[in-house]
Simulated assay, not measured.
Amino acid sequence: MTMIALVAALLLLGIMLGAVVQLPAAASIPAAAVIGVWLIVFAVRERRSTRFGRS
């Protein structure tokens, strides 16, 4: 399930990068920040779960 979420986030990031040409910076920068924060949270949760032996 987590791999599907990661693929969806990367797909959304790709769509945003394609749309960033047509979006103003006021819309694209916050969207990129939200995606980046989500990926950081995801990475931290994955690292904590593997450190404690959960799969």
Rank of each mutant, 00 (worst) to 15 (best):
A9W: 03
L10G: 10
M3L: 10
I29G: 02
V37I: 13
G14W: 06
A43G: 10
R48H: 04
A8W: 03
I35A: 06
T50A: 04
A26I: 14
F42I: 15
V44L: 13
L12A: 15
F42C: 13
L11W: 06
S49C: 08
A9H: 05
V34M: 12
R54T: 09
S55W: 13
A33K: 03
V7T: 11
L11I: 11
A8C: 11
A9C: 13
L6F: 00
S49I: 15
A27C: 09
L17D: 09
A27K: 10
F42K: 12
L13I: 05
I4F: 04
L39A: 10
P24M: 06
A31H: 03
Q22V: 07
G18V: 07
S49R: 08
I15G: 07
Q22A: 14
V44N: 05
V44T: 12
R54N: 08
V41C: 11
P24G: 07
L6H: 02
L39W: 01
T50R: 04
A8T: 06
V41A: 15
V21Y: 15
S49V: 13
M1I: 06
G36S: 08
I35G: 00
Q22R: 12
R54Y: 12
V44G: 07
A33T: 09
A43K: 09
S55P: 14
I40M: 14
A5G: 09
A32Q: 03
L13A: 11
I35V: 15
T50E: 05
A19P: 00
I40Y: 07
A32R: 01
G53N: 01
L17E: 10
M1L: 09
M16D: 10
A19L: 15
Q22K: 11
L13P: 03
L39I: 13
A19C: 11
V20T: 14
S55Y: 11
L10R: 14
M1P: 05
T50H: 01
I4W: 02
I4Y: 02
L17Q: 06
L23V: 03
A31Y: 05
M1T: 06
L11Y: 08
A33D: 00
L10Q: 08
A5V: 10
I4G: 07
V7N: 06
R48A: 08
A33S: 05
Q22N: 07
M3P: 00
I29F: 01
W38H: 11
A31K: 01
M1C: 07
